[in-house]
C-alpha cells in the first residue's frame, strides 16, 4: 500500500510532535482509499492521557476520542484510517508495545523526534495475524529533511 500525505500535513504532524517533546504526542489520520492506495486528507491532534510520568515513552487516547473522531469521519464522508504518534529520541519503528495495542487495516505513522526535532517519519501496518508490522511506502516522504 502507498500512503499519500501532503507535505503540509507531514509538517503539521512534525510541529505538533516537536511541541510535545520530550513526551509522546499523537492523533488520528482521516482519509480515504482503496486496497493499495491511501490518501490522508486530514489529521486531528488528540491529547495524550497516559499517566504524565510515563508520557516520555507512552501514548494513549480516551476511547471517547475514537468514538468522536469515527463519527466525525463518517459525517465528512471519510474514514478513520490510522493514527500517528512520536517516539522521542527513539527510531520511527514500532515497538512491542505498539504491536500489542495495534489493529490491522490501520495506518500507523511513527515519527522519531530527536532532541526536539522531528527526524524521520515512517508508516506501518500490522499483519492480519498480529505477528509483526510491515512498512508502507509513503509518497512524498522526506519533507522533514527540508
Amino acid at each position: 500500500m502507498i500512503i499519500h500525505i501532503s507535505h503540509d500535513l507531514q509538517r503539521a504532524i512534525a510541529e505538533q510532535l516537536e511541541a510535545t517533546y520530550p513526551n509522546e504526542g499523537g492523533g488520528f489520520l482521516l482519509g480515504k482509499g482503496e486496497a493499495d492506495q491511501m490518501q490522508i486528507v486530514d489529521i486531528v491532534q488528540v491529547d495524550n492521557v497516559f499517566a504524565e510520568a510515563e508520557q516520555h515513552h507512552r501514548y494513549a487516547m480516551r476511547p471517547q476520542d475514537w468514538m468522536r473522531l469515527e463519527d466525525m469521519a463518517d459525517a465528512r464522508g471519510l474514514s478513520l484510517v490510522g493514527y500517528y504518534h512520536s517516539h522521542p529520541d527513539s527510531p520511527s519503528v514500532p515497538s512491542e508495545y505498539d504491536r500489542e495495542h495495534a489493529l490491522p487495516n490501520f495506518v500507523y505513522i511513527i515519527t522519531a523526534v530527536l532532541m526536539a526535532r522531528a527526524n524521520d517519519m515512517r508508516a506501518w501496518q500490522l499483519r492480519p495475524d498480529r505477528s509483526a508490522f510491515d512498512e508502507l511506502d509513503m509518497a512524498a516522504r522526506g519533507v522533514l529533511a527540508e
Binding site: A60, H85, P91, S95
Partner: peptide, 20 residues
C-alpha cells in the same frame, strides 16, 4: 453495542542505535 479500541503506543526500550 460499540467496539472501541483504546489507541496506545510507545517507545521501544532504548539501546545503542543510530538515528539521523
Amino acid at each position: 453495542l460499540r467496539i472501541i479500541p483504546s489507541i496506545a503506543g510507545g517507545n521501544p526500550p532504548r539501546s545503542p542505535h543510530s538515528i539521523g
